[in-house]
Design a protein around this nucleic acid. Structure first.
Length: 561
RNA sequence: GGGGGUAUAGCUCAGCUGGAUAGAGCACCGGCCUUCUAAGCCGACGGUCGCAGGUUCGAAUCCUGCUACUCCCGCCA
């Protein structure tokens, strides 16, 4: 609809140029906005304001000329010049109603587009090391990352979701030592307890399972406990598998799936890390100092150079990060989005710098990052500290068990990633019925209920027939709903390109609000069939868009509540 | 000291990439169930968009400088 309007304005401008009212060399950027206030019509353009200077005419006069030169079109009932020189367009009811037709024809596909054109995109998220259960911060990453995947798939991208983790580093060693200590009957406060060992209860359970020789089946690995407390390597293998399986269960309970689990250790085994070092040396971006090998990341915008190889010969985490992202590039992802906690923001410049230093023609801003700010958890008015070592923290599973999957997902995805999030458990629990997610789901269930009621009354309804009667709609709540529905494809498109899934949540809240208002103002199941059919068509369209939107957030759309 | 993020109603947050009179939800106050789901609706209250400049027809939005809070700044990941 915007397109059509924009073309009409363009034609008008062309004829004004031809008539000499406008100079030849103008470069109009025709912009059409939805109006916020319905007294301003349906759409508005600021074109006269932006061209006024070049045209050497007052904006309102220019707007008048543009309106007069506008070709006749069915979709416009009238235009109005307002304020400093806006042109307001009042669209015909028919053009407003067209959206219902479109939704009922496209169904699940309404809102989708093909801007991705089948190109490959990867979203890496969560990427928690297997040293403990997932906590709320990981939950935010999971909710945002998974929703991003859904948005990208809906906009025509070939999406791959990936979980990256280190299965062999110092922290894993620490984990193995902690389990070993438990196997030997040690307590965290004993003198012999490993320094910085993990203290959580799950370490005890892990040790018991290992000694019982349990078999562990995680998504990406299968291990049977050896039972021998002296075999640290076996303990390590077992512990990693055990915690990976725990995380699998967390993710499954959250409705999040990964296509690929990528191991940091594989980068060493394949020689990718070595090759990356060599390539960086060959390209002349490194130097040695104090026995360590440095990469001159300052050449690429970093504020100081970074060590790649320590003086003891080991690599810093930075190097496998670069090797990993080179690997992603080689896998053909034109777009990569890394969803991480904002505490990792300093790696952004570093990884990009490392990739530039490889001189493989990787674009400068590649990859993309979505960094979410901290999640703090409040319980009984106090902040719950997230300390893995102390073992007392709120896990994602706790949250799902207490608050429910849908509410947890909604809470964690409904805010802009850049804003800090306070997850108040008591609030989420005590007011679980006032939760915004239920408000949206309730609207969906209400429509489903209407359809059931319709049958009980012995009436029937079909979309095709109902479309004949759309002319019955036109009252102000209905117009507001139609306008809101019409926006959905734009919301999806913007959310996907800007990596902002929270805007979908905001939209759904507004749509549900419009629906509840309308529902309360009118009876849907009226005697007159044309009006009834028309209202049910609108209801069904709302239901469909709510379902489509909730699916993008990974939240269910219940038929009854 | 350097960098990331944030600052909008009592509280939690939106604000469609610069538009017209800044919006929701909680909380508080007053109404609406013999009628399709009251997990709902209607109304009232509530604002110096952190502060100060700048850019222009027009700024919560862009630029500069401050202030506050928060996170990072290791040859840890």
């Amino acid at each position: 609809m915007k397109e059509e309007l924009s073309q009409l304005i363009q034609q008008s401008l062309d004829s004004l140029v031809a008539q000499g009212h406008l100079p030849q060399d103008i470069q109009p950027q025709v912009q059409i906005d939805r109006t916020r206030d319905k007294s301003h019509g349906d759409m508005a353009s600021n074109i006269a304001l932006t061209l006024a200077k070049a045209a050497k005419k007052p904006p309102r006069d220019l707007a008048q000329l543009i309106c007069e030169a506008l070709p006749k079109a069915d979709l416009i009932t009238r235009t109005e010049i307002a304020g400093p020189g806006f042109i307001n367009f009042f669209l015909s009811q028919q053009s407003n109603q067209a959206v219902i037709r479109r939704i009922l024809e496209e169904r699940e596909a309404f809102g989708k587009n093909n801007v991705g054109r089948g190109r490959k995109v990867q979203v890496e998220f969560v990427s928690a090391n297997p040293t403990g259960p997932l906590h709320v911060g990981h939950g935010r990453g999971a909710a945002v990352g998974d929703s991003l995947c859904r948005l990208l798939a809906a906009t025509g991208w070939d999406v791959s979701s990936e979980f990256y983790y280190n299965d062999a580093g110092a922290q894993i060693q620490n984990l193995a030592l902690s389990v070993q200590a438990r196997c030997r009957g040690l307590q965290p406060d004993d003198d012999a307890w490993p320094e910085d060992g993990y203290r959580g209860d799950y370490i005890t359970e892990l040790a018991e399972c290992y000694q019982r020789r349990d078999r562990i089946d995680a998504e990406d690995r299968h291990v049977t406990g050896a039972g021998d407390p002296d075999d640290l390597e076996s303990i390590r293998q077992f512990a990693v598998a055990y915690l990976r399986r725990e995380q699998d269960l967390d993710l499954k309970a959250f409705g999040v799936h990964f296509d690929i689990y990528f191991l940091e250790s594989s980068l060493y085994q394949s020689g990718a890390v070595e090759a990356t070092v060599q390539s960086l040396i060959d390209n002349g971006h490194t130097y040695e100092r104090e026995g360590a090998l440095w990469l001159r990341t300052t050449d690429f915008g970093d504020d100081k150079d970074r060590v790649m190889r320590k003086s003891d010969g080991g690599y810093t985490y930075f190097l496998p990060d670069v090797a990993y992202h080179l690997n992603k590039w080689q896998r053909g992802f034109v777009r990569v989005i890394n969803e991480q906690g904002a505490d990792h923001h300093s790696t952004v410049t570093r990884v990009r710098a490392g990739l530039q230093a490889l001189q493989q023609d990787i674009p400068e801003g590649w990859p993309d990052y979505v960094l979410h700010q901290m999640v703090t958890v409040m319980r009984e008015g106090e902040e719950v500290k997230l300390s893995k070592r102390a073992g007392s923290y709120v896990t994602l599973r706790d949250l799902i068990d207490e608050v429910g999957r849908d509410a947890t997902r909604y809470f964690l995805v409904a805010r802009a990633a850049s804003s800090q999030l306070t997850f108040d458990i008591d609030l989420a629990l005590s007011q679980s019925n006032d939760n915004p997610v239920y408000y949206i789901q309730y609207a969906h269930a209400r429509v489903c209920s209407l359809m059931r009621k319709l049958e009980q009354q012995g009436w029937t309804w079909d979309a095709q027939g109902a479309l004949e009667h759309l002319g019955e709609l036109g009252e102000e709540h209905e117009t507001a709903l139609l306008r809101r529905l019409d926006r959905f494809p734009e919301v999806v498109a913007n959310a996907a390109t800007n990596s902002e899934p929270h805007t979908v949540a905001t939209y759904l809240r507004e749509l549900a609000g419009d629906f509840h208002t309308w529902y309360n103002a009118h009876k849907m199941l009226v005697e007159e069939q044309p009006l009834r059919d028309a209202r049910l068509a609108l209801s069904d369209a709302v239901r469909q868009v709510l379902a489509n939107g909730l699916a993008l957030l990974g939240v269910s759309a219940p038929e009854a509540m």
